[in-house]
Nucleic acid binder design. Sequence first.
DNA 1: CTGTTAGCGCCTTCAG
DNA 2: CTGAAGGCGCTAACAG
Lengths: 347, 347
Amino acid sequence: MSPKRRSTVVLVAERAGVSIASVSRVLNGLPTSPEVKAKVEAAARELDYVPDATARSLKVGKTEQIAFAVPDLGNPAYVTMMRAVTDVVAGGGYRLVMSSTGSDPDAQIDLLRSVNRGYADGLILVPLRITAELVEELSSSRLPIAVVGTLPDSVPIDNVRAVSADGVGMALDHLYANGRRHIAFVNGPVDTVPGAARLAGYLAAMKRIGLPTTAELQVEADDFTFDAGLVAAQALLAQATPDAVMCANDLLAVATMKVLARADRAVPADVAVVGMDDSDLAELASPSLTSVNLGAAERAAAAAELLLSRLADPGQDHRHVIVEPQLTVRESSMHAPTAHPSRGHRR
Amino acid sequence: MSPKRRSTVVLVAERAGVSIASVSRVLNGLPTSPEVKAKVEAAARELDYVPDATARSLKVGKTEQIAFAVPDLGNPAYVTMMRAVTDVVAGGGYRLVMSSTGSDPDAQIDLLRSVNRGYADGLILVPLRITAELVEELSSSRLPIAVVGTLPDSVPIDNVRAVSADGVGMALDHLYANGRRHIAFVNGPVDTVPGAARLAGYLAAMKRIGLPTTAELQVEADDFTFDAGLVAAQALLAQATPDAVMCANDLLAVATMKVLARADRAVPADVAVVGMDDSDLAELASPSLTSVNLGAAERAAAAAELLLSRLADPGQDHRHVIVEPQLTVRESSMHAPTAHPSRGHRR
DNA sequence: CTGTTAGCGCCTTCAG
DNA sequence: CTGAAGGCGCTAACAG
């Protein structure tokens, strides 16, 4: 039936009896006489003509694509970010090229190199670990980049920052205000950016509040995942009897609740639990999970907007925007009843 | 410092004192004399040369990109698919261009048109609603396509199918075997492919087992989402007193569990709950959720492989692969204790 | 084994 | 307002 071969401007031009330049003009909405316009449009329709994106890209020097790299799509926080980025980017007329880099900075460097081959006009990167080498590589990239995460001020790259330490502080204040005094901390790997920041936040807030930070109250999961959280929470309960657990992540928090349930410790009656990220999970959990909203969606959207803005005007100064955390209080941290251990699991 | 301008083969060729063809050869690993190779590599390094992906694409006629379209990234099942697709596709040396089309077939048609502009070499599509128009458009696409979902056998397009009706059947058998007799059904929109299939499965299985299917036992959520599930489950409890609830989706199942908890009905003691998709959520839920694994990851991976295979050999016959469902039994459907209505909300 | 040459499909000056 | 011509950066025949 129809030829396997795609139509091109020349075919359309021949069919319409005009020059290829006229075809191009009509297609791009440049001023043309109505007759020519009509002829070209008819020809294009008859030939089923579709302009070629690659050729256009080569000529124009823009791919209309933006690359987006996250550490782990198993983490709902990153999925949230992805959704936000998708929206902004699509709104700007760009397509999204996804890549899941894992937590390895080397993989991100590889990515950077490959994106520098020009298959995308810009890159949004969410690094889990920020090494000197990565920063170096980022700085020397030809391509506009926006980073979700805190970069040293000296690095000339747009980035958007969460203040997770403050977020942890808000959560601890809330727990303290509700009478919790033995507040444990389930962290993820401390050699990651969020791991380090959240631990610092926990220690600082505990000190400020005047609560002791014993080693028994702190555990570190091998990863920011549910499974790792199960192990960590189990370890925690084996060595301490907290009346509240702050978790570095909703996944870790849900895991902690699961372990608490198995140990017949009621949430929030016996122990309160607070997560971070305020992902969809927090709402779905039973009891629903109090969580520190670090503005994943906002941060991702902001990064996307920084990038779009730079793409539109490459000369502008590099900016960093700060997104403040917010505490979303749900069932898992409700005030502990005066005494009764049983009854009233839920509101 | 370095020129804003990217290096090109010409520059490298000049610097190395060879022809651009030689540069190209070295870069693509074609046979070359060691000397030329060394000179070119040195020049490329010094100039910080990176080949341009767009130009290569134009010349070679391949973008090394695959487009992947899902209805809703808020649904963990699609996130699972995306992860699977990402892996397969990356393994084949392709990049992934994501797009979230929503459930609108028209949006998918638009997508099809736009992908036909050639920014990707193939498309993996997960449609929520399959209209005649969509099928028509799919069939007439120049681009290789793989569909996750059941297409009429006559349509010449690779597709991979779940047998969700069987899956529902397995779940109902399991519930029946555990003494449940009033098995309700919380479905999603019945005008979607999965909605229709799962309802059919429910009705067929209930009939086969010999249980009545009253209208009171069936509700339809407006969407396959948690929020819609809350509303639907609430409606269900207002009109019936099931001892088991089959849900068309893990999100709906989790919502149902939440509503049951609020109504002080214990899961699984008072009522069993079963979901579908066996997403991460099932494991995380409390109690953990029995769920029909429809092989989301497998199906997505299979679709990706079909596509890669066709890209490698466009002439081959169109195939459809069938992925059998599997029931993963967890806490939410454990055998009901002989009588006691109260006690033991949680395990 | 290497260099020259012709495009891939499109946009965009430049004349007419 | 329209047509002719020159690349964008790269690869793949061809010759040598």
